[in-house]
Design a protein around this nucleic acid. Sequence first.
DNA 1: CCAGTTGTAGTCACAGTGACCAGAACCGCG
DNA 2: CGCGGTTCTGGTCACTGTGACTACAACTGG
Lengths: 243, 243
Amino acid sequence: MSVPGSTATAAVRTSTARVSTCAVAVDVALLTIRDGELKLLLVQPDSPELAGWWALPGRRVRDDESLDDTAHRALAELAEINAPGAHLEQLRTYGDPSRDPRGRVVSVAYLALTPTPGDPADHHRARFFDVAEVGIARGLRLAYDHDRIVPDAIERARSKLEYTALATAFVKEPFTLAQLRRVYEAVWGVPLDPANFRRKVVSTPNFVVETDELAPPGPEGGRPAKRYRRGRAIRLHPAMLRP
Amino acid sequence: MSVPGSTATAAVRTSTARVSTCAVAVDVALLTIRDGELKLLLVQPDSPELAGWWALPGRRVRDDESLDDTAHRALAELAEINAPGAHLEQLRTYGDPSRDPRGRVVSVAYLALTPTPGDPADHHRARFFDVAEVGIARGLRLAYDHDRIVPDAIERARSKLEYTALATAFVKEPFTLAQLRRVYEAVWGVPLDPANFRRKVVSTPNFVVETDELAPPGPEGGRPAKRYRRGRAIRLHPAMLRP
DNA sequence: CCAGTTGTAGTCACAGTGACCAGAACCGCG
DNA sequence: CGCGGTTCTGGTCACTGTGACTACAACTGG
């Protein structure tokens, strides 16, 4: 029951002995949508012994830097992605003592969502991968414990689409409801009925706000679609449950 | 747009310079239900300059210790609570550079839920507080940034009761549906209709499993209630939304 | 036995949703 | 120009889940 090596009386003393100052890092799982598919940003680590492996962009935390700043810096330095407006939220912290073979590193994982960036990430050592590829780990080797972080990030995104207005973080403003629907379809991996989706979105208060603009039809033709902007709603009431 | 003091070329080098190894701590927000009210465990910090203040039980992470182990150790050492079966989950990590005046400490906050423990926590420097007291911070001084962690913990518990079977973590097995209902009422702070609550719980697959035992009526009398055990469901489909 | 309390079962109206269908507004082509 | 093909938008209908409520069951103490 009780923890070995400690007693209640010893606990009263200020505990500075036997306490390590481990390194703290931030790893970012950046998701975006490209070609109608959900994509994950991965980079090749610096370490020569990890050649051929891929990893989430991550940086160690500097002493004067907030965790959010470290996340932004990791994206900027490792993938040249500067998106100060991107949605960024903590996922969870991975602190297993053996997760990094080079020593004790506690990693704060972040989830980032952006509209498709202008392809600056395909430079040097950063690429977007289809999440289906990563999920089955088909030949793709993920470094450290990032194969545990990635599924958590994807599941977080999938579930947050249900009860928050987070889907709008994937599209540039203004957007059509079809674009927003394709976000849900890509993240959830299921087709949705356009009419029911529309009814649900416009009936949810402050999810999106209508503009008077029209979007030109795509290459397939079709009726022009109204353009919308993000509403001020954070949570959706009631939620939009996946089928 | 770009991060000051860093360039893309500098990023390729292995970055060991300018990186701090900050201290990592775990703080635990333990919630339980006593006298029909939601209670939060707080302790008096060791530091003499924090006399009169209260804080979440927290410990620094040792180098061979997982974060979960540190959370259990914090509860054991600071409040003599040894509950290996208690529900424990990460809340989020607080890493603002100025959150601890004594230096850079990154804190991984945990949420813990237990059935009412046998009052061992009222010893030396640990007490349960009504969350209403803490919420309004009525004369209660919370150390560090724990006044930010506590509302996050309470809100997490409230929302997780909606879409997970977590309410059963607050009651000892076997339990009656009235006990389970009082969990929801205490955490959400609203009364629920007994009949509708019952219909909802038993119709949700694998939320609870019926036994053939009966619980004796309480001091107010009344019909004996059937006893139930936790089902194997983790998530509730559909969710039990708060009114 | 009776009033009070709690647990359990059922009824009714209503909101939200999935599965459709139909029309509106564009496209390219003959 | 008409016409089929496509997408967007509005509507109907059946069904589910829920809130409000009533009724009954099974115990208590006086």
